[in-house]
């Protein structure tokens, strides 16, 4: 998958919804409406039988077969966290660690508080050879990452807008019911603090997610100082190593690792999360 695809469309393979409808739905202004659509969708289009079939294959040990069905489901738009998670498990059992990691990360980006996904990612990462940890990490940044980790960017965005709406509500009530003024002083201060916090969280989460990430697929790949085979080798990465995409050419991506090392990686040896 091209990186540019992901930047502009959604993270799943082949999003098929129309952009206008999508933006409308994602705004959650018509929450009930979308829920209704979702329910209808579930009833008529939900690939429940295929999902069950794939699960049965997984149970019997046919991990390749199971993975095939899950992949097909995703292509058909069934890009739910459960499908990604099960696909990741199939890949893992099939020995494809990097692909498993990609699918786990996709599932986690949908449901970041799912303990099973977190556990499996931890198990998988314990079997990866590259140590990718921030060097002399500052405690505050670490703490922030821990804090925003369990939330999706959409959740934080929604909360930010919600608090903004609340703030306006107070301002409105304050204007038209001056009697309530005594109460509103404190409430407004608290709301304002919340607003600032939410904005800060949004900023940190945005920092985290604004660069798409890639996972190395090859067993071993040389990362170079420039987007060419002629460039000097900077370091070597192994299967499952993750990095943020900072730049790209037609065949290469510039990745930055968690320890702030960066270099160019051939696109064919990695895949976007």
């Amino acid at each position: 998958m091209k990186i540019s695809d992901v930047r502009h469309s959604e993270s799943a393979k082949g999003g098929r919804r129309i952009s206008k409808a999508r933006s409308f739905a994602s705004l959650r202004m018509t929450l009930i409406f979308s829920t209704l659509i979702f329910m209808v969708h579930c009833t008529f289009a939900w690939g429940g039988t295929q999902f069950t079939e794939a699960n049965a294959k997984y149970q019997t040990g046919d991990f390749k077969g199971a993975a095939g069905i899950y992949e097909k489901l995703i292509q058909e738009g069934e890009n739910s966290a459960a499908v990604y998670y099960n696909l990741a498990n199939s890949y893992f059992r099939d020995g494809q660690k990097a692909r498993a990691l990609i699918a786990y990360e996709r599932a986690l980006s949908i449901v970041p508080r799912d303990p099973d996904i977190r556990w499996n990612i931890a198990v998988l990462k314990s079997a990866l050879p590259d140590r990718l940890e921030p060097k002399n990490g500052n405690v505050f940044a670490l703490w922030i990452r821990e804090f925003v980790g369990p939330f999706t960017i959409n959740e934080i965005s929604s909360v930010l807008t919600g608090i903004l709406a609340l703030w306006i509500l107070w301002a409105f009530l304050n204007l038209f019911f001056p009697v309530l003024k005594i109460w509103f002083g404190g409430i407004q201060a608290v709301t304002f603090a919340l607003l600032i916090t939410a904005a800060a969280l949004f900023f940190f989460k945005w920092q985290e997610v604004r660069h798409p990430r890639v996972v190395v697929l090859d067993k071993e790949v040389s990362v170079r100082y420039g987007p060419s085979e002629r460039e000097t080798k900077a370091f070597t990465l192994h299967e499952g190593a993750q990095g943020a995409v900072m730049d790209e050419t037609s065949d290469w991506v510039n990745v930055m690792l968690a320890d702030k090392n960066s270099g160019w990686l051939p696109k064919k040896s990695c895949e976007l999360i």
């Binding site: 469309s9 959604e10 993270s11 799943a12 999003g15 999508r22 933006s23 409308f24 739905a25 994602s26 705004l27 579930c42 939900w46 429940g48 999902f51 699960n55 997984y58 069934e78 890009n79 739910s80 966290a81 459960a82 499908v83 990604y84 998670y85 099960n86 498990n89 199939s90 893992f92 059992r93 996709r106 980006s109 949908i110 449901v111 099973d116 556990w119 499996n120 198990v123 998988l124 960017i153 959409n154 965005s157 929604s158 930010l160 807008t161 903004l164 949004f202 945005w206 997610v209």
Partner: peptide, 29 residues
């Protein structure tokens, strides 16, 4: 070892486009 697969997929939330990439979201804000 890894945990078992999810057997109930119907209620699982789907991937959605990030709100912050949506101009309508920012207009609303």
């Amino acid at each position: 070892d890894i945990r078992y697969i999810k057997t109930d997929g119907a209620a699982s939330p789907r991937a959605s486009a990030p709100l912050y990439r949506n101009s309508l979201y920012w207009v609303l804000n």
